[in-house]
Amino acid sequence: MKTYIDTGKKDTRSGFGEGLTELGRTNPNVVALCADLIGSLKMQDFIDENPERFFQTGIAEANMMGMAAGLTIGGKIPFAGTFANFATGRVYDQIRQSIAYSGKNVKICASHSGVTLGEDGATHQILEDIGLMKMLPGMTVINTCDFNQTKAATIAIAEHDGPVYLRFGRPKVANFTAEDQKFEIGKAVHLYEGRDVTIIATGHLVWEAIQAAQKLSEKGISADVINIHTIKPLDEKAIIDSVKKTGCVVTAEEHNFLGGLGESVARTLAEHNPAPQEFVATQDTFGESGTPDQLMEKYGLNAEAIIKATEKVLKRK
């Protein structure tokens, strides 16, 4: 079984910060905006190197999204950063009208998504953002799993012409994808070949899926594991091909089971290859204060939860 090595825990938001800094050096059209969260979004290096290309909007996310839309008129590629909650729900109509419907080339960069934001609690832990964003026509939705992938994704989305929602997080997590990876929007990453069950994970749950697959292997269960970093457009072929082979699927995400990756997978399978599915996700609930690990355990978002879901789905085959 292939071994994925954690090269040292790092936060995905720092991957965003490094990617943005690199873009600042390589693409003169890239500009950045932030609504009073520079430190949290790791944007300081970009700002130090390109002060004229940075726009501090203050605590005014609606204006930030509108300004980002306006900056595209004149050829700029704006990266607008704030917490996922304030980058989606708070400004949904601004994104809908001024960015998505208007077809503007804005990159919405959302940190601190999900319960792993931790102690700040439910006011800041959005678990609905993937659903909100994937419903917008023309919006690309990406949820990266580690530092290296987030950095690669940040750089890649600058080359994509159109609005993108890039979702990442706060805690330091395993960094296991290749440093020199080529990030292809809409292309699934196959982590393990298996025959008994398909495990499809996104974001922080990808590392948990790897841990789960290794433990399942010890129990004689062979898991096909797919890292879906792009929830929209979804790599439907990778999903269908895998489930045709395994006959059942477990989806895993740090998001409500309503509106998330699991629903996108279920819709794809319902249309092309119906199969039993279990959802590792929050169950239509808000989060709460706690450490990231405590919250992932309490809300059933870890390797153990994936193993339990796998055992359950296997019985439904």
Binding site: V31, E52, R53, F55, A62, N63, M64, M65, G66, M67, A68, A69, G70, L71, T72, I73, G74, G75, K76, P78, D93, Q94, R96, Q97, S98, Y101, S102, K104
Partner: peptide
């Protein structure tokens, strides 16, 4: 037409962004 409008209150922000782009472009 350079941006959709109708849901009120958004045009000034878009105009601001376009104005900042003009400054960056030395236009």
């Amino acid at each position: 037409i350079r941006v959709a409008s109708g849901s009120l209150g958004q045009g000034m922000s878009v105009a601001l962004g376009a104005a900042q782009a003009k400054k960056l472009n030395k236009d």
